[in-house]
Amino acid sequence: MSFDFAVILAKLPQILSGLGVTILIWVGGTFAAVVLGFVVATLRRFGGRGIEVILRAPIEILRGTPFLVQIFLLYFGGPYIGLRLDPWLAGLLGISIYGAAYYAEIFRAGFQSVPVGHVEAAECAGLSRNQIITAILLPEMALLVLPPALNMSVILLKETALLSLITVPELTMTVQAIGSQQYAFVESLVILALVYWALVELANWLGRYAERNLSKLSA
């Protein structure tokens, strides 16, 4: 048996379209997840005990259940409570919410990692509470959370492949469909793996570049 990649590569425009959807959901979902996760972590840190308790449960549920189950519940279960979403919107929302739970934990750890003494030094210098948050806590935290945050975005990229199961026309669904049409299943899987790997390497390369530029700031 011989591999024939040509029959798949002949559908390059379709593949690129699927790749575009994957990148859009990945970048858009990661962005929304970072923002949402940050808001949640900030509320937990500064919002008082009540908010802390309320927010803890949903985060634990989201981190404690498979992403596949979550998007099935959102897409197939949503209509039972009147929530009818287009596949791509359900996918984007799913990635955002799932990612937000993890980013909230990453930022929570980040807040805790800033030494108390750095805040005390800022208080002694006369900075107000808001100035301490914006000028000291947030930038210091950004440095600390950069590696785990980038790692999480790579995980989210790979999770987008599951969105093919709720018929989002992203990379996995597109390439597998081509593979079925052309009777080239294995070839399609090999190409899928290579494209995802290339995207992950690109993300890692960007991450290493950012870390190199910031490394002089950490002891």
């Binding site: 030494p115 002694c124 930038p139 210091e140 002891a219």
Partner: peptide, 17 residues
């Protein structure tokens, strides 16, 4: 009141960024 006081810590507590 605290503006009259300068504080120096054992761990320096410089802001790394």
């Amino acid at each position: 009141v605290r503006s009259r006081i300068g504080m120096v810590f054992q761990q320096f507590n410089l802001w790394p960024h």
